[in-house]
């Protein structure tokens, strides 16, 4: 369910406009009609919203606990020379959904078929998060894997061979530290190439 739903009963419409509850929990909804879509998905608390904020220059609420994002946010982001609609989604562990927020995310994938789906994972927890990547590959979802929070993984002594992982999975794989703005240029580049090739 989206916030600015058009199929609302009259009293809700009136009350939301009157009270400003339409634009609820600090989520963003920029005008992005007609643009190709890029969705950010992944487990809760891996930094999807941080990436969204960087890519769009907008601000959606970011916190250090799972489940901060409960709504879909849409913003405009420039990658290369082209503008895209960037979509931030509530956390999802698996394509097989448990919670309402997970359903929101899966419905979005099913309904809007984004040009690229950026699967953001916590690098140190690759083992627990890769199953969703595999599920999306299985579903022919155009997925790019982003190992975020790479700094924490590195300080734990973890080394990940990105090239090898990329070869194994057959999809683009790269690493970022979104909170410190690291790896963003490469991310944009790879998304650009990927969408262009598709």
């Amino acid at each position: 369910m989206e916030c600015c739903n058009t199929k609302q009963p009259w009293y809700k419409k009136i009350s939301t406009t009157l009270l400003g509850t339409g634009n609820c929990h600090g989520e963003v909804n920029q005008a992005t009609q007609g643009l190709e879509k890029i969705a950010l998905v992944g487990s809760p608390n891996v930094g999807k919203s941080v990436l969204f904020n960087i890519l769009t220059g907008a601000y959606v609420t970011v916190s250090n606990y799972p489940g901060t994002t409960v709504e879909v946010s849409r913003g405009k982001g420039k990658i290369g020379t082209k503008e895209y609609e960037i979509i931030d989604t509530p956390g999802m562990y698996s394509l097989l959904c448990i919670t309402e927020e997970e359903k929101v995310t899966r419905d979005l994938l099913l309904r809007e078929s984004p040009k690229a789906v950026v699967h953001v994972v916590d690098a140190k927890n690759l083992q627990r998060m890769l199953p969703l990547t595999l599920q999306m590959i299985e579903g022919d979802v155009p997925v790019i894997l982003v190992l975020n929070i790479m700094d924490e993984a590195e300080s734990l002594g973890l080394k990940i061979d990105l090239k090898k992982l990329e070869a194994e999975l057959g999809i683009p794989v790269l690493s970022t530290v979104a909170a410190l703005n690291k790896g963003i240029e490469v991310l944009k580049e790879r998304i650009g190439e990927y969408v262009y090739a598709a």
Binding site: L126, Q127, P131, L134, G157, D161, K164, L165, E168
Partner: peptide
């Protein structure tokens, strides 16, 4: 669901084993 997730996790485990190494880190 259980059977399917288990096979998938097996695959993930092999991938991770091949691509991730651990050296001494600072905690």
């Amino acid at each position: 669901n259980y059977i399917i997730s288990l096979s998938r996790q097996k695959k993930v485990d092999t991938i991770v084993e091949e691509t991730m190494t651990k050296v001494q880190g600072k905690e």
